[in-house]
Simulated scan of single mutants.
Amino acid sequence: MSNPTMKSYEYHAWANGRVFARLAELSEETLHQELKDVFPSLYAGLVHIYQVDTVWLAAVQGRSYEEAKELRAKVQEKTTGKSIKELEALFLELAESYRNFLNEGGVPQLVRDFTHPTLGVLEASISELIQHVVNHGTYHRGNITSMLRQLGYTGVPTDYVLYLYEANK
């Protein structure tokens, strides 16, 4: 894969898929079990990743902060009461939207202004913001692994090097 931004995003999608495969082995009760951690449950952690991924896709596509904020509320509604398989389907659909966007010629190199009401204006490339999406997901997949261990389950390895080994088979 010659596009480094796309490769980075594909790692993110792969790692999310590994987490879903692991969580699909658990009961719905376990997924929603309340914890005192970064997120109140494993499920809430996944919803947060999905929510942020959705908002950033809107931002890199040129939508305003206000539009992205509205999307965030819609995501909460969209994910409420979903099974793990239904939530995974939402992630897969979103990943396809990212791929379609990133495969448009020259998109990763585009530089845009991203306006936030308290942080100000950020001038950044699409590639830089995709790196943020990937880093954000990596951080919270680590939280989910920690939460799994608190519940007495093994985590799921999602290290980038594992993705590289698997992608090069």
Rank of each mutant, 00 (worst) to 15 (best):
L102M: 06
Y65S: 00
E66T: 10
K74I: 00
E77G: 05
S83E: 03
S97M: 02
Q76G: 12
L90N: 04
E93W: 02
F101P: 10
K82L: 15
R99P: 03
E66G: 02
P108F: 06
K74S: 06
Y98W: 15
R99Q: 04
A89N: 11
R63P: 00
F101K: 07
L94G: 03
Y65E: 10
R72W: 09
G106K: 11
Q109C: 09
R112F: 04
R72P: 01
E77K: 10
T80F: 13
L94E: 02
F91N: 03
L110H: 14
Y65D: 07
R72N: 10
G105V: 08
E93R: 03
R99V: 04
S83C: 07
E77L: 13
K78T: 12
E86K: 03
R72D: 13
P108D: 12
V107A: 09
R63A: 03
A95G: 01
S97Y: 07
K69H: 07
R99M: 00
G81H: 10
T79H: 04
L92F: 06
Q61I: 04
A95N: 14
A73Q: 15
R72G: 12
L94N: 10
K82I: 11
K85P: 01
Q76F: 07
R72Y: 06
R63G: 01
K74N: 06
E86R: 01
E70F: 07
N100R: 12
L71R: 12
A73S: 11
V107L: 08
S83P: 06
L94Y: 06
L90T: 10
L102N: 07
R112D: 08
V107I: 14
V75L: 06
G105T: 13
E66M: 08
I84K: 02
N103H: 13
G81I: 03
E88C: 00
K69P: 01
L102S: 08
Y65A: 01
G81F: 04
L94V: 05
S64C: 11
S83K: 02
L71P: 05
K69R: 14
Q61L: 01
A68K: 05
D113L: 02
K82A: 12
L102Q: 08
E67I: 01
S83W: 04
K69M: 03
S64Y: 14
A68T: 08
K69S: 13
K85E: 15
L92D: 15
G105K: 15
D113V: 07
K85H: 11
E88P: 00
L110V: 15
T80R: 13
K69A: 13
R63M: 08
Y98H: 14
N103C: 09
D113T: 07
L71W: 05
T79L: 04
E66S: 08
Q76A: 11
G105E: 14
V111P: 06
R63N: 05
V75W: 07
V111C: 13
R99H: 08
A73G: 09
E77A: 14
A68E: 01
Q109V: 08
L90Y: 13
G62D: 10
E96K: 15
A89L: 13
L102W: 02
T79N: 05
P108V: 14
S83G: 09
K85G: 05
L87I: 05
N100F: 12
G105A: 15
